[in-house]
Computed example of a mutant assay.
Amino acid sequence: MTSGRVPVQDGELFFEDRGAGHALILLHGGMLDHRMWDGQVGPLVRAGYRVIRYDARGHGQSSTPKDDFAAHEDLRDLLAGLDIRRASLVGLSYGARTAIDFALLYPDAVEMMVLASPGVSGMQFSDPAILDLLRQQSEAARAMDAARYVECFLRAWVDGPQRRPDQVDAEVRRRCHEMALDVIENHSSAAGAVHELGALNRLGELAAPLLVLVGDLDSSDIHAVAGRIEAEAQFTASAVVPGTGHALAMEQPAAFNAAALTFLERARLAR
């Protein structure tokens, strides 16, 4: 395994690179970092992939944003810095959102995609439980209450609207708490906005084979977006992972890995 940093505009991205074979880029969820993929790297490498996971700007060991930036352009710079012309993308939540924007702008650079608990730039939230937690999170930010802010994040995007905290794997919750708190402690000085494409109305342009995975206990907003991707993108497969919420790759790593690897292998054979 190698690790290092790749320069991007006004900053740098931390990455880990392991294995050999077809390049597979892992894009983590918002408020998390590359560590969320601990349960995926080994199985993917053993399956014959070169696995690159990295911290998005404003997360983990990557740079704190100083001005406006585009996460999909950071991904482009990462691939260029690692001399990768074509790769498959595996993204969860914010990572899926970035992967979709990137695939719309740079379709020739994307071979296949696995989109888990996907966000899509341009989407709006309507789930009452999520809206209430986002409101509480904003209040916590104004009060500079980091503990409450992180708990609201966990309630919305780890527990989900259908579960209590004590119904979620305690170790998964602890890991997500640690990563989210690191974001607050290390990147609270972030400035600028994230530029996105507004991909919600461009999903029909997605031409790479893609798999959509969603947990059955995730919010209605994520289920709705997943349904739109499945209906509108050109070559899609989908699955619902039972007994899990938004952080499904962490909660159900065996099911996630099996679904992702089966799809990737079948899609490659079909091309």
Rank of each mutant, 00 (worst) to 15 (best):
N257E: 04
D17W: 10
A193S: 13
I100R: 03
A116R: 11
A156E: 08
V8G: 02
H195T: 06
R53W: 04
T98N: 11
G19P: 06
G245D: 11
A129E: 10
D77Q: 13
S117K: 03
L206N: 00
T262F: 10
S93L: 02
L217D: 14
V240F: 11
I229R: 01
D68S: 08
H223Y: 14
D108L: 11
R173L: 10
R5F: 05
G160A: 13
V214N: 07
E171V: 14
G48Y: 06
D169H: 07
M31G: 10
D67E: 13
G198I: 01
A226I: 05
E151T: 11
F15I: 00
L203M: 00
H59S: 01
A237W: 08
Q252V: 05
A56P: 09
W157V: 02
A231L: 06
G243M: 05
D166P: 07
H246F: 06
H195S: 04
V212T: 03
I25W: 01
L213C: 08
D169N: 12
A249F: 05
L104Q: 04
L27S: 06
E16A: 03
G160V: 15
D169P: 01
Q124T: 13
L131N: 10
D17P: 03
L264E: 06
M31Y: 15
R163S: 15
L131R: 10
A20G: 05
V90R: 02
A129N: 09
G30Y: 01
S126N: 11
A141E: 09
A224N: 11
D74S: 00
R18T: 13
P107H: 04
Y149K: 09
M112C: 13
V110H: 05
G60Q: 03
A249N: 14
G11W: 03
Q9T: 08
A99L: 00
V183H: 12
Q162P: 14
N186Q: 11
Q61V: 00
E111I: 12
Y49H: 09
G91D: 06
I84G: 04
P242E: 06
M1A: 13
P128G: 04
A141T: 07
A129D: 06
S220F: 11
D33P: 03
S63A: 10
P161E: 09
E171R: 12
D216R: 15
A96Y: 01
D221E: 12
C176W: 06
V51Q: 02
A70T: 05
R268E: 14
A255V: 13
M123E: 09
R53G: 01
R175T: 15
N257G: 02
P118D: 01
H177K: 15
S238Q: 14
P165L: 05
M112Q: 15
L213W: 01
R135W: 08
M250R: 07
Q162A: 13
A208Y: 02
D108K: 13
L210C: 03
S3P: 12
S138L: 13
L181K: 08
